[in-house]
Amino acid sequence: MNLEVTIEDARWQRLEPLATRAIQAVLDYSGLDDDLCEISLLGCDDARIAELNSEFRDKPTPTNVLSWPAEELAAEVAGQSPVKPNPDFTGEIALGDIAISFDTCAREASEAGKSMDDHVTHLIIHGTLHLLGYDHIRNPDATLMEGVEVEILGKMGIDDPYCMS
């Protein structure tokens, strides 16, 4: 896979290996040829992600992860799987961009009693699924997306992040 990682916050020392593993798991699950897929990833802090959240979502607050799909792939019918992306004229599949905030991820992991690595892996999977057309606005879509996340994480040996036990 062609993963372009930009680190704006030096605390993201482990972002690239975590992201590579998480994105690879999503591409494997989706049956996509990882040699064709391109993703850009930004590791930033709360101030930067708040700027992006304000600019693109009109929400001037920090969040954990944002994604910008290169192509609209969402299913028209709620709860159905998204359309698979196709290669462009160059033979590549540009999936889009993801930004992730260290501050919010660290705080959420601490509050949930989870390891930072597991939480970041989950959020990279979540962001990558958004690039592939998954969403959680409609309830059936949220159920589908969460199920896919849990399945991929399970294959990676990571506990269900939605289980509150």
Rank of each mutant, 00 (worst) to 15 (best):
L18H: 03
C105K: 01
E92R: 13
D35L: 06
D97S: 13
L3C: 03
L32S: 06
A74C: 14
L41Y: 09
V83S: 09
A19H: 03
L18P: 06
G43V: 09
D46M: 10
L52P: 06
N86V: 10
G133H: 01
A78W: 13
E151M: 05
P140Y: 08
P85Q: 04
E8L: 11
L131C: 13
E151Y: 10
S81L: 14
D28E: 14
A142S: 11
N2Q: 11
L32E: 03
A25F: 11
P82W: 12
H126M: 07
K84D: 11
F89D: 15
E51L: 15
G133D: 01
V120R: 06
P17K: 06
H122N: 11
L3Y: 02
C44H: 09
R107C: 05
I100E: 02
A19I: 05
A47E: 13
D46S: 14
P60W: 06
I124K: 01
L129A: 00
C105D: 13
D34P: 02
A74S: 15
F56G: 01
D35W: 00
E72S: 12
S40I: 00
K84E: 08
L3M: 11
E4Y: 07
V148S: 03
G43C: 04
D45V: 01
A70S: 15
W12D: 09
G113T: 03
E51V: 12
L41M: 07
G43E: 07
F89K: 08
Y134D: 06
M116K: 02
Y162D: 04
G96A: 06
L32W: 11
A74T: 14
S67L: 07
G127F: 09
A50M: 12
S115L: 13
N139G: 00
G157P: 02
D97T: 14
C163S: 08
Y162A: 09
I98S: 12
L153Q: 04
L144I: 00
T104Y: 11
I39S: 03
P140E: 04
T121G: 05
K59D: 13
D34Y: 04
I7V: 15
C44D: 12
E8I: 00
K155M: 10
V5L: 09
D33M: 05
E38I: 12
H136L: 10
K155W: 06
E146Q: 15
